Amino acid sequence: MPKTIPRTTNQLKYHRPKIAWNSGEARIPPLSRESKRCLRNLAAYRTPKPRLKVPRSRCAAVLVALFVGRHGDLYVLLNRRSSTLRTYAGDTSLPGGKADTEDRSIEDTARREAFEEIGLPKDRTKVPLLCILEPFLAAELIVTPVVVLILDNTLRPILNADEVASLFSHPLVSFLSSNPPFPSEPDTLEVPYHTSYEITGHERTISTFRVHQFLTGREAGGIKPVFGLTAAMMIRVATIGYAREPDFEVQAPNTPTTEERIAWALLHRPAFRAACQEEGIDMKVARRIVDAFQKKQGARKRKERLERPRREAKL
């Protein structure tokens, strides 16, 4: 794949604050107290032991690459996907992709994809691992976020133009807030920085969940908001790092957990079901998780039916 930056494109202009990719110094700016706590929390985080076994052929990873801005705050690298891609063209995303047979771990997958897409070195001394989060469910993939910290600010991004159109950054802490971290542009004054809505699947499914969106402040330049899966991952990273909940509700009441949604997908979505059969994965645990959720939902609905006449009588 080509790994060249067009001569007419100045990649540095997409950073706010700018990363010193081309400077001769490898020092990062002094960390703020909040950033130090955030990095300690992320480095100490360990995912619970998973109950579900998922097919490797349906696994993917993204790299959440953090760096320190000039005022000591933490930023995450995001990219604008190429407009020529067949799926999610032009979307704002994290570098990542499906696991290859050569990848020894999900961390290797995330690092390889980031190297291929934005030229971020796989060197673990320059870009050390902070933590690996629980997997998230995409349409036909199970995606694991791998969180790293860029220590060497002399690194220069090399964009694969076939996959990535541009690279920019966004404050990590802003994924916990409804207020924008940037001055509002004229074109976005009437649009809230953070919005969300619920997606409800067929009544046979348990796929109802809340989708979040965050403006980037670059919409006038064609950059799309941080949306859907990417937004959900960034909310989770920020929540763990800053050890506090967002000032908005992440999920609606009675929403299935990610584990419950993955279990349902393994049982009912054709791509997952075929992959599980091909890899000989036992589905007993997935069935138990889905059955328990449906039983819980049934009990809740029965309780609501019983309580409805009482509430109406009080009115």
Rank of each mutant, 00 (worst) to 15 (best):
A99V: 08
R124Y: 02
R27W: 06
S105F: 10
G72V: 15
R51C: 06
L94F: 05
I142T: 13
L78Q: 09
D123T: 09
K53E: 13
R33V: 15
A43D: 06
A43C: 03
V76D: 08
N41F: 12
F115Q: 03
T92Q: 02
S57A: 15
T47I: 09
V76T: 11
R33H: 15
A44G: 08
I118C: 03
A89R: 09
K126F: 13
A114S: 11
T92K: 03
I118D: 00
E116V: 14
A110R: 03
T92F: 08
V54F: 00
Y75W: 01
A65F: 04
I106F: 11
A138K: 07
R124E: 13
I106Y: 10
K98M: 12
C131P: 08
I28R: 05
Y45L: 00
L94I: 10
K49E: 04
A99Y: 03
H71W: 05
T125A: 07
E34M: 01
I19V: 13
V64M: 02
C131S: 13
Y88I: 05
F67T: 03
E116S: 14
A60D: 08
A43K: 03
R37V: 07
P55M: 01
L39K: 05
S57H: 05
V64I: 10
D73P: 01
E25F: 11
V54L: 00
V68Y: 06
P135S: 02
L77V: 05
L133F: 14
T87K: 01
F67D: 04
L77A: 10
R86C: 06
I142C: 14
L78S: 14
